[in-house]
Nucleic acid binder design. Structure first.
Lengths: 253, 253
DNA sequence: AAACACTTTCCATCCCACGGAAAAAAGGGG
DNA sequence: CCCCTTTTTTCCGTGGGATGGAAAGTGTTT
């Protein structure tokens, strides 16, 4: 809820990393310091340390800092870890093969859905590897599926946290969304129609919690373009989607 | 050469991250402290900060720490940055489509080749997304292609740095390897035959430096299994490989 | 040339990271 | 069930190093 990070050297350094993550083209010392809210000399020192460990790359010519190669290694390790949900990859591949559509797995992280695994479909709609992307929970089918399965307290907290419009189809009314989540919980899957991105619709189902208790951490979705796939056609894949979700639950148990 | 990192709070925290990266299953406080060479209380404090920023995930039930979701976001940002070589993706996709083989791009990082971009081939040989993987430079075609294009000083430093055997086909003689690199430099492409992984052969070409001066940072390779593709057949793809390397150079210039 | 913006270095002050130690908690045998 | 071991967590006094303002160095714009 409140500021998650302290202000020690470590948290400051990590903050610099996220600042650089928001500026892939690279940033100078003072620009980094400005956006991170730090004195220039401190930023300079911290960036030096980070660069020594190659978590940031320093371009001597342009005198700019950007993320370094070490972050790649970390993410690879993460994706292989249980938290990386690599166990979900095989069921998702089968789902994508059966339906021809791209399959995406995501988790709820704060008020965002974080995409953790993507499998390309066979159609020529190739979504760029989106792992690590954030989206507002209320604008995505993954987010709705996950929110619907949440304990009431947390679900209400999400609803109270603000529902900004992403497209002009995004639901922004807490009341209407609450009702939709009830329907989602009842039937076991969620749906989104150009609420997050114009031209894209998707369906999603939460992966049942293998532990039996607690709410699902993970959800799977199928995406499609509105021009190629009607809402009705997309719904025909709901059984396959639910199968996949249960397969994943079985594998992770 | 020497220890690259200092021993302040920041470097220690980053070291903990790499420790956790080596243990995807998760580790307890004392195990982390042991492998990182830190007092338990210090590791405990640092892990707490890292967890507060969600760079590590803490499982309250098992009391184990593992990498957290924030690293995913960082890597995504990295892959989109110029250093992530996303510009190479399109030429590589074309190369993979033309040849049917998986294409891989890598850079030299110390004595290792770090894979930064992979594109699946159309054959059923699907290499697992390998971005972030390290391999000894002298056992890979990418490494040979990059080393051959290096200034002599640096190339000799690599040769002097030790050439451990990976498979029983790995070249471990500095003299022989030096000669091979000379041939690679002359003809513009490198080749590897089960020197890094049994059953896999590959060819690689360095991407000419767009700046004109300086040595290439990036190389592209095509991989194949020995059972499906003979060395001769693989060599027929050399022109396509060189084309791709030049396309990438053009795009990045 | 002068004014400006940025990067890098320097250093005295002060704060906070440090780690040993102890407490608390969690297993694990007998 | 209790004792013993291992691990996790908390506590706290000390000292070293992080801190940030200022100045020097560097390059760019008007």
């Amino acid at each position: 809820m409140s500021a998650p990070s302290g202000d020690d050297m470590l948290s400051r350094g990590l903050r610099l990393l996220t600042v650089l993550a928001d500026h892939p083209a690279g940033l100078g010392v003072s620009a980094v310091a400005r956006t991170a809210g730090l004195p220039v000399s401190s930023a300079h020192r911290l960036l030096g340390r980070l660069a020594a460990d190659r978590f940031v790359a320093y371009d001597e010519d342009t005198r700019r800092y950007a993320l370094g190669v070490r972050v790649l290694e970390l993410s690879r390790a993460f994706q292989r870890s249980p938290a990386g949900y690599s166990a979900a990859a095989d069921p998702m591949r089968r789902l994508a093969a059966r339906t021809g559509l791209p399959a995406i797995a995501g988790i709820l992280d704060g008020a965002d859905v974080l995409l953790v695994l993507t499998v390309q479909g066979t159609q020529h709609l190739q979504l760029r590897s989106a792992e690590g992307t954030r989206n507002p929970w209320h604008a995505t089918s993954l987010g709705k599926a996950l929110a619907a399965a949440l304990p009431e307290r947390e679900r209400e907290r999400l609803l109270a946290g603000g529902l900004p419009a992403v497209t002009d189809r995004t639901r922004t009314e807490p009341g209407a969304l609450r009702e939709e989540l009830a329907r989602v919980a009842a039937r076991g899957w969620a749906e989104v129609d150009e609420e997050n991105e114009v031209g894209v619709r998707s369906i999603a189902a939460a992966v049942p919690d293998p532990d039996g208790h607690g709410s699902p951490r993970l959800a799977v979705s199928l995406g499609a373009t509105v021009v190629l796939t009607s809402a009705e056609e997309l719904r025909t894949h709901v059984p396959a989607l639910l199968d996949c979700a249960e397969e994943i639950a079985a594998v992770m148990g």
